[in-house]
């Protein structure tokens, strides 16, 4: 018995250590910092301080810390952008994934390779490439004007549209791959069975294909949603830093406001909100697919 538990401990040791070092420990540090007093020049002072949260949620002393609803509105704005990114990625990827899954094996591999190609270069470089494409004298406007489709250059750069475009661009591979996995595994026979039983194509899609590919949809949505909420580079580069995202706010606390605890508190808040949103979405989706 004793011997067994020792062996079990040895077997589980590396996994525990891995999770502890790479997941739990950083999380604990953030959680701890979020309730400490900000040091004047960055870092923390080891005294309990709850106003990092109070500033966001509505209690503050009004002197050193002031409650401002702006933080929550920035959070909701970021959640909105992330949700929009998820939605657009989904709408774009679903039909394409379907199409790709029907290609001959060789072309499928080529396509999957192309989808992962952006990962080979830096995100920053790719975003600056978009900047060059979207700017008034850029490639897009050059083509549009040369073909006579527009008279004056379209103002896309430094607008919310550019931010959404950039986010969708960055996140599409993360949506595509899980979605493709699910659609590729889709049981064609079940689709045929549904049509055979008199369901129209739309009914078949809603009642059979969608529920069957739901794990892929949820997987893609989660993987896209999480980094989208915290993304600050895209709004900075393509949005001209005019709209503040929650990720900007966190970055700012560490890189210009020198307020680590507040940055940590904001991070904890993002994590909790994302967790709640995702759990709600997943449970709802699961429940819906069970009932008629």
């Amino acid at each position: 018995m004793r011997r067994q538990s020792v062996i079990l401990g040895l077997l589980l040791g590396p996994v525990t250590l891995f999770l502890g070092v790479f997941f739990l420990l950083p999380l604990l540090i953030i959680a701890l910092f979020s309730v400490l007093t900000p040091g004047l020049y960055g870092g923390v002072e080891w005294a309990f301080y709850h106003w990092n949260y109070g500033r966001v949620f509505g209690w503050a002393d009004g002197i050193t810390e002031i409650y401002e609803p702006v933080y929550l509105s920035i959070l909701f704005r970021s959640l909105g952008f992330a949700a929009m990114t998820v939605g657009i990625c989904l709408l774009l990827c679903y039909p394409v994934a379907f199409w790709v899954s029907r290609l001959p094996q060789r072309w499928r591999l080529v396509f999957l390779f192309l989808i992962t190609l952006p990962f080979f270069s830096s995100l920053i470089v790719r975003l600056y490439a978009w900047l060059l494409i979207l700017k008034p004298s850029g490639l897009l406007n050059g083509v549009l004007m040369a073909t006579g489709l527009v008279e004056a250059p379209l103002e896309i750069l430094y607008t919310p549209a550019a931010v959404v475009l950039g986010m969708v661009y960055v996140m599409i591979p993360f949506m595509f791959l899980p979605l493709y996995g699910a659609i590729d595994n889709l049981d064609r026979a079940q689709v045929e069975a549904s049509l055979d039983l008199g369901a129209t194509r739309v009914q078949t899609f809603v009642k059979v294909m969608l529920p069957q590919t739901l794990p892929g949809i949820m997987g893609g949505a989660v993987i896209v949603f999480i980094p989208s909420v915290g993304n600050f580079i895209v709004p900075d580069v393509l949005g001209g830093a005019k709209g503040l995202m929650i990720g900007n706010l966190v970055e700012q606390q560490f890189l210009s406001a020198r307020n680590w605890p507040f940055g940590a508190a904001l991070s904890m808040i993002i994590m909790s909100v994302v967790l709640v949103v995702l759990l709600t979405a997943v449970t709802r989706a699961r429940k819906r697919s069970d009932t008629r």
């Binding site: 002031i66 702006v70 503040l244 900007n248 706010l249």
Partner: peptide, 8 residues
Amino acid sequence: DRAWNTVR
């Protein structure tokens, strides 16, 4: 910091 958040 607060002023900057307001501006942005």
